[in-house]
């Protein structure tokens, strides 16, 4: 490894010659006289930096603000106003959550079932001004989503979207009807309002499957079957494709979030039915079977028990 007289930094190790020569190509790369900056691209570059600072998943809100202040000093105050442009892409994404690895997503034969407890405050708080979902699937491609749906600062609703049907939307319950189902769960020294959701997909007979959604009734100490649907499908319909690949996720509809309440998942468990028709045992969702996805929409992890429990806030 040698250094050029003009660059006192050691040459990076590469697969090439250990002492590669340097050549001065600055003239080659100098902008042409008639060069016109692409203002839109440059603004997009700055806007992206601001977005990253504003939504960085590992920074606390105070650290984000300090970073934004630094950017304003470095880039100018107008740069901070570059967010939320009208021509920005549709801000759909995953604020934070778990996706199944492919071997696990496809690793069932005659059935799969998911139980999880949704950390679901009665109000989303912060700057939520459109939809926000707390949802999960049980791996089956024609399974269902039984989920908590927020819209702006309205009271949330509990909904069921069945991927097996043409008329997907099946259950839409106001929060005021869920009093018996809400419970308090403790995790990492904090109490959370939670809703226990159990959704299953299994084969009734060759090419005939059933979807079910149940809620844990805390008041009655029982599960309540709230939805069921039988339909024709093949195993490949259930294990193939992308649908069904998400475990508990905070599904977002805005480019950035701030000062929201905490959302998340507790006790996420799955069970598998094999080709002989036998159910295995419930297993907490592990980091070996899943991975965390975050799209930098402002949510940061409060805790993560890989990967069966987490809470996030913004």
């Amino acid at each position: 490894m040698t250094n050029s007289p003009d660059t006192p930094v050691p040459t990076p190790n590469t697969d090439q010659e250990p002492s590669a020569p340097h050549s001065d190509e600055r003239e080659t790369f100098r902008p042409a006289v008639d060069y016109r900056p692409d203002e839109r691209a440059e603004q997009a570059f700055l806007a992206s930096k601001v977005h990253i600072a504003r939504t960085h998943p590992t920074l606390h809100p105070a650290e984000r603000q300090a970073t934004l202040t630094e950017l304003a000093e470095r880039l100018g105050e107008p740069a901070l106003g570059l967010r939320d442009r009208e021509d920005a892409p549709t801000p759909g994404g995953v604020g934070y959550g778990v996706f199944y690895n492919t071997p696990f997503k496809t690793g069932f034969a005659q059935g799969t079932s998911l139980y999880w407890e949704v950390i679901c405050p009665t109000a989303p708080g912060g700057n939520v001004n459109t939809w926000l979902y707390l949802t999960a699937m049980n791996r089956a491609g024609k399974g269902l989503e039984a989920f908590v749906s927020y819209y702006a600062q309205d009271a949330p609703r509990f909904k069921v979207f069945d991927w097996a049907r043409d008329d997907h939307w099946q259950i839409d319950i106001p929060w005021s009807s869920l009093g018996s189902y809400l419970m308090t769960r403790s995790a990492h020294g904090q109490n959370y309002q939670a809703l226990g959701v159990w959704n299953s997909t299994w084969q009734l007979s060759p090419n005939l499957w059933r979807n079910q959604a149940l809620l844990w009734n805390q008041a009655a100490q029982r599960y309540d079957l709230i939805y069921q649907y039988d339909y024709a499908a093949a195993l490949a319909d259930q294990t193939g494709g992308w649908i069904g690949s998400w475990g508990p996720i905070v599904e977002t509809f805005q480019p950035s979030y701030s000062h929201t309440n905490r959302f998340g998942a507790l006790r996420t468990m799955l069970i598998t039915r094999d080709s002989g028709g036998s159910w295995g045992s419930w297993q907490l969702l592990s980091s070996g079977d899943s991975y965390i996805r975050t799209d930098n929409t402002g949510f940061r992890s409060v805790f993560l028990d890989p990967n069966y429990a987490f809470a996030v806030e913004s």
Binding site: S113, W198, S200, W202, L225, R267, R273, G277
Partner: peptide, 26 residues
């Protein structure tokens, strides 16, 4: 065959922890 119920979060040793929770059709 429906799946067995999720395990209870009650402490081991609690006799009710081993009992499957009932299911009501709502």
């Amino acid at each position: 065959s429906r799946p067995p119920g999720p395990p209870s979060d009650r402490r081991p040793g609690d006799p009710e922890a081993e009992e499957p929770a009932p299911i009501a059709d709502m």
